[in-house]
């Protein structure tokens, strides 16, 4: 167990240094760098959404709304109020967390389709509000946000997200969430406070979505309400379903794959969306449970494949 942790630690540091060096020496061209950053941001968004949809079983479609909150709050803090980056990110995340609680308390009493529609509405409300607030530029958005997101910040926050959510899921709290997903009534008869855990999972997911939004704002230096439309929530949901509801590593792999697919298909012009959609359909037909199902990808898998080829 200990060896395994050390090995994972070494691998993670090696990955960080390798990419760091590759960016520094120009080995990764600027176009691919953009996608690398998007990958990190998408991983944060997908893993945090998986906590809500995959582990707690609450179909929420307002993730982009929380990303918008994180993006706007952090951008206002750094650009307009001259605050440092780290507190700005955290402030964005905390705001998203608090709004998560406020939105979650009434809406999480709903289930299934109703919850999906209510959270979808919430995402659109955030967008509508932003369009109408002149202080944050209305529909034109905020321009000229300092480009503070670098590889180190991105990597650190991606790791923080993945490990926080992994630990949460493996704790008693996480068990309670999984029990709610499997059977809400039974969970309630076990003495689990279902409202509390649904709101908790929802707002923790919102917290990390806020981080993803803040990192996004400080990399692309321009944010507009339209950036955080329903499509962005939908993208995150696609990654979660594609990777497997209830698999963190699945979400990571799917976030990387979807980002890569989007980048690789860019040369196909208008055909891109069609091919992208087609690929998703094919994958869902052949693997309806998602790439990983509810399982996690572990080092064991990797070695088994390397050693024997067959398992």
């Amino acid at each position: 167990m200990k060896h395994k942790n050390i090995l994972i630690g070494i691998l993670l540091i090696a990955l960080y240094l390798a990419v760091y060096a590759a960016i520094g020496t120009g080995l990764i061209a600027p176009y691919y760098q953009v996608n690398l950053y998007l990958m990190g941001i998408n991983i944060i968004a997908a893993v945090s959404l998986n906590l809500i949809v995959g582990f707690t079983g609450q179909l929420a479609l307002g993730h982009a709304g929380f990303m918008a909150v994180g993006a706007y709050v952090s951008a206002v803090l750094t650009l307009k109020l001259g605050q440092p980056f780290l507190p700005a990110i955290l402030a964005g995340a905390v705001c998203a967390f608090v709004i998560g609680i406020i939105i979650g308390l009434p809406t999480l009493r709903l289930t299934g389709d109703y919850l999906a529609i209510a959270t979808l509405g919430f995402g659109e409300i955030i967008r509508g509000l932003l369009v109408n607030i002149d202080y944050v530029g209305g529909a034109a958005g905020i321009n000229g946000i300092p480009k503070l997101t670098n590889w180190t910040w991105l990597y650190l926050f991606t790791l923080l997200t993945v490990f926080s959510i992994k630990n949460f899921v493996n704790s008693t709290h996480g068990r309670a969430c999984i029990a709610i997903r499997d059977n809400e009534l039974a969970a309630e008869t076990m003495g689990i406070n279902t409202t509390y855990y649904k709101v908790l999972a929802f707002s923790i997911g919102a917290f990390f979505a806020g981080i993803a939004g803040a990192l996004y704002a400080h990399y692309f230096f321009l944010i507009q309400p339209a950036t955080f439309s329903f499509m962005k929530s939908f993208d995150a949901l696609v990654m979660v379903v594609f990777g497997g509801l209830g698999s963190i590593t699945g979400s990571i792999i799917a976030a990387m794959a979807v980002t890569f697919m989007n980048a690789a298909l860019i040369n196909f012009g208008s055909l891109r969306m069609i091919i992208y959609a087609l690929l998703l359909v094919i994958i869902m037909v052949f693997r309806p449970q998602g790439l990983m199902g509810t399982k996690e990808f572990t080092l064991k898998h990797l070695f088994r494949v390397k050693e024997g080829g067959s398992s």
Partner: peptide, 8 residues
């Protein structure tokens, strides 16, 4: 209807 946690 039993309602066990099927995935656990």
């Amino acid at each position: 209807g039993r309602r066990i946690f099927a995935n656990l």
